[in-house]
Structures are given as structure tokens and as C-alpha cells.
Amino acid sequence: MLGYTVRRILQMIPVLLGATFIIYALTFLMPGDPISALTGERPLPEATVMQIRQAYHLDDPFFVQYGNYILGVFRGDFGIDFFGRPVLDLILERLPVTFALALTAWVLKLFIGLVIGVYGGLRRGQSGDHFALVFTVLFMGVPGFVIALGAQTYFGVHLGWVDPAGIRAGWPMAFILPALVMAFEAAAGLARLTRTSLVEVLRAEYLRTAKAKGLSPRRIIWGHALRNAMIPVVTYLGLSLAGMLGGAVIIEAIFNIPGIGGLMVSSINNKEGTIVVGIATLLVLVYLVFNLLVDLTYGLIDPRVRI
């Protein structure tokens, strides 16, 4: 297991290098000049543009720019933005916000999704199951931003229970509404997956054996059925947490949450390559780590998978 883990971690290095290279190349190839866009429609004087381009080595060939960047990264220097602020500071300022939102949403989703899924799976075909189906289909069908805007207007403006925008109220008050919206949206998928998986496992022969052996229903469900039904669910959960960390752009924009996603979008618009690569690298790293964690968790749940 230790050898496996070390091997997996070593494998991350070429993946990370490849990812940074591709992303750097893509931002480099994107049309547009970041300097000329700094001030909107009124251009900076030519001499000023020249000086800024020089200060940021924008006229160097691509490989020289990329080489300088990677060397900097190995020294822990992720570069500076066009106003002289270190990119690492910009990311680190926003990272805790994104983590707080994603984790809150993930835990809520875990709870909501599992409860609905397990309930539906155990009561297959009964009215409770049908209700759960309607509920999940509703949240899967309505676009996320519609639910977000509606919840923001109703709970934030009309009822005034929480601030509709921004994180000045801190955790948990500022995060609860957006996290709930994200949770309900994602819980639908989780509930469906859990239900299907559980229904399948309940039909398995080893459960009939367990029943024939005279095990109590509680033991059968909690010890055998759920444990086996959880294997696909764990994969899904691990990757969805990674996805929530990088993919909450729309929710962040609606609720004015200064997370990584918004920074990424604005940096792409402004062609701020160093920021884009910094965030993307970080997200790739998060995905790799979570993938590893998921694979390691398999072994714990399913003794047949020994790594």
C-alpha cells in the first residue's frame, strides 16, 4: 500500500508538468494582448505599453517564458500580476473561501443525497420512493442558476434571513445558502446513484445467503447491503468534491463569493496567463490527490480490492 501510494505520487509529477505546459501554451496562444486591455478602450501610450511588456518579459519567445515560469515555480515563485501583486497571494486569499464553500456544500450534499437515496432504495416502488424520484428529477431538471437566483431573491432579499451577496457575514451564515443550492443540485445525482446501487445489491445472492443464515435485517442492511452499495458512490463522491472546488463559478458569481472560479474566469478574460496557470495547476493537483484518496478508500470498503 505504501509503495503504491509513493508510486502514484511520483506519477503526479509528469502529469503536473504536462498540464502546466498545455495550459501555459493555450493562454499564450489565445488572441489578444493583456497589456492593451489593461485600461479598457482608452489605450495606454505606446511607450508605457512597451515598458510594461518589457517588465513582464512578454516579448520573449514562448519556451523562454514557460521556462522562466517553471523555474520560478520550483523556487516557490508563481509570478506577479500586471499590478505587481504576487499570484500566490491572490490564490491563497481565495482558496480558503472556495474550500469553505465546497466542503460545506459537499457535506450537505452527502447528507441529503444519501438519506434520499437509501430511503428510496429500501422502499423501492413505494410512495416514498416515488416522491424521492420526483424531488430529484426536479432539482436535476431546473437549471442551477435559476434555483440560485430564486433562493437568493427569496431568502436573501425578501425574507432577509441571510445576506444575498458577499461573505462579510463569515462562515456559516454567508455560505449556507449557496452551499445548499449547490448541495441540492448535486444531491439529486448522488441520490439516484445510491438508490440504483442499493437496489442492485439488495437483489444479490450473498444477501439471500445472509438472510438464510438468519442475520437480523439491520445487520444485513448496514453491514452488507450498504457497504457494498457504497463502492460506486465513493468514487463519485471523491471526484465530485474535486469538481466542486473548481466548478462553482456560476454560484460564486451569483452570490458574490470571491473564490477561485471567479478569479479563473476573469483572468482568462484578461489573458493573465500566470494566474490562469497557477490556478489550473492547483486544480489539477487537487484532482490527482482526490483520485488517489478514492482509490485508497476502495481498499478499505472492499477487501477484494487490495492495493
Binding site: 444575498p164 451577496a165 458569481a253 451569483i254
Partner: peptide, 18 residues
């Protein structure tokens, strides 16, 4: 100076009196 990522959440915040 309250910081917003775009004018839409700012407007919503204004309707909420913030």
C-alpha cells in the same frame, strides 16, 4: 467600498438594503 464580482449581486444587495 464593498467588493463585488459583478454589478448583478451588487444590485441584489442594494435591494436587500446592504
Amino acid at each position: 467600498g464593498k467588493i463585488y464580482t459583478s454589478v448583478d449581486p451588487a444590485y441584489t444587495d442594494m435591494t436587500a438594503g446592504n
